[in-house]
Nucleic acid binder design. Structure first.
Length: 258
DNA sequence: ATGACTGCCTCTGGCAGA
């Protein structure tokens, strides 16, 4: 089965591109971030027409996540990240699909830092870690994936200097990400590309795409049960160069059937 | 160089993104 993640930067603006990618690549599971729509405006019927069933967790204007599955309805397990009753941002959705727990996330950006937005990011990361650690302890076959808004290491950015003050690569952000890896998660893209230089995001500004000024912030973390089944992982880079593209590319893992 | 682009809702300009 192929499990993919795609920050689409607005489902209304991206719908033709998204449907095109689904039909061309046909992932078994597609996790979306930044759908930027209210629940009542999610275009579920457009996905049904091409054989995908969906669950979604939206809000007005910002954030919003969805899980699509080919030919099967995702069984929802968690809506919103637990651990803070006051947090109303739609950034987390978890489901069971074909025996795999799919944890889809859109982690807070955290800029500007320092400040309350950065504090929110770090607190959110600790809540995520706790939620996911429980899955490891239960020995569940799980994939935690999405837009983490964290550049894990210097090898994951085109120019360290250009991003050094950004919340995406502050030591606190990296430490929080590393703590998750140390819990036992496998960063699928990283283990298959240990020398780095793989980007999943190119800014719209300053000709970043044309100059290949990108970085890696969309990640797929596998529990040991899933890491054992890892066959391949990659980035659908060509989609970044198409008309009306998202600023992120899809990322995916291919796992052997049990 | 306090830039650059894009999407959203609509106070069509201000916010958010990263």
């Amino acid at each position: 089965m192929r499990i993919a993640s795609f920050n689409i930067n607005g489902i209304k603006a991206r719908l033709p591109r998204l449907l095109e990618w689904l039909e061309e690549r046909r992932p078994s599971v597609a996790c979306l971030q930044e759908i930027k729509c209210m629940d009542e405006n999610f275009p579920a019927e457009e996905f049904e027409k091409i054989g995908y069933h969906a669950i979604w967790h939206g809000q007005k204007s910002f954030n919003g996540v969805a899980i699509l599955a080919d030919g099967v309805k995702p069984e929802e397990r968690q809506r919103g990240l637990p651990g803070d009753e006051s947090d109303e941002q739609a950034r987390y959705l978890e489901a069971e699909v074909n025996g795999v727990r799919i944890c889809n996330l859109y982690l807070p950006n955290g800029n500007p830092q320092p400040g309350p937005r950065f504090d929110y990011k770090l607190a959110w990361m600790e809540r995520l870690r706790a939620r996911c650690l429980a899955h490891l302890q239960a020995e569940i076959a799980a994939v935690v994936l999405g837009d983490f808004n964290v550049i894990p290491e210097d090898k994951d950015v085109w120019a360290v200097k250009a991003m050094e003050d950004d919340a995406l690569m502050q030591p606190e952000s990296r430490d929080a990400y590393r703590r998750m890896l140390n819990d036992g998660w496998t960063d699928a893209l990283d283990v298959l590309n240990p020398r780095g230089g793989v980007w999943t995001y190119w800014d719209y500004q300053a000709g970043a795409w044309q100059r290949d000024h990108g970085f890696r912030i969309d990640h797929m973390l596998l529990s040991p049960q899933c890491a054992d089944r890892l066959r391949a992982a990659g980035v659908d880079k060509e989609y970044r160069g198409r008309e009306k593209a998202s600023d992120h590319t899809p990322v995916w893992v291919e796992m052997a059937d049990r």
